[in-house]
């Protein structure tokens, strides 16, 4: 309390406070007129906001995972399973993006390393390795992932599909980038790309 107030002034201030409290008690603890006005205005603004209808077809459900320093997402309709990466077996004579094969529930799935496509640095020791198995009627393979971050709903129109530094092969497999900088992969394109097939001629 500032020093220049003398005792009388203190008493005066106290009395004013008490009067204010009394008034509020009489009014049944109502807020003062100004606060009341402000609150009503705020509520009006809130209610006046047009409700944006979340149409189900405008939402896509994606599985998010990290790979290296980056965050990726892929539509869950292409995902058959996400599991800790079992011990894999590297194969001789396969292109660099094929990390090897793993056994998943009795059958064999090849493991692709997206870092090779996206020219991400393939270094650094990471201990958490997961496999995201993508499947369509006539294709199946697993993508290497560092960590699974869970499932999210994304608005399809929130995806930004042009990004200056996304070109060539990087852009080819992308559906777009979200505002929080998740890279959304084009699962249908990945699964349907004949270039990903390994078919050595005899």
């Amino acid at each position: 309390m500032p020093a220049f107030l003398n005792d009388e002034q203190h008493w005066q201030r106290l009395r004013e406070h008490l009067e204010a409290f009394e008034r509020r008690i009489e009014d049944g603890f109502a807020v003062d007129a100004q606060t009341r006005e402000e609150r009503l205005q705020a509520r009006t603004r809130e209610w006046a906001q047009a409700i944006e209808e979340e149409r189900p077809e405008s939402l896509i459900e994606v599985l998010c995972f990290t790979l290296g320093e980056e965050l990726y997402a892929i539509e869950t309709r292409h995902v058959a399973a996400a599991l800790p990466l079992p011990q894999f077996t590297p194969l001789p004579g396969t292109p660099p993006f094929v990390l090897g094969i793993v056994g998943v529930r009795g059958h064999i799935v090849s493991v692709l390393d997206l870092r090779v496509f996206f020219q991400l640095p393939i270094e650094g020791l990471s201990d958490k390795n997961y496999l995201v198995v993508l499947r369509s009627a006539d294709m199946e393979f697993g993508l290497l992932a560092d960590r699974i971050r869970g499932i999210e709903q994304l608005r399809r129109d929130s995806l930004q599909s042009e990004l200056a530094n996304l070109t060539g092969i990087r852009a080819r497999y992308l559906l777009g980038v979200t505002l929080d900088q998740k890279t959304v992969l084009d699962g249908a394109r990945l699964l349907g790309d004949p270039d990903l097939l390994v078919r050595d001629e005899e």
Partner: peptide, 11 residues
């Protein structure tokens, strides 16, 4: 070897 590896040389 799975659907993606249709034929791998030597395997």
């Amino acid at each position: 070897l799975g659907k993606q590896l249709v034929r791998v040389r030597n395997l």
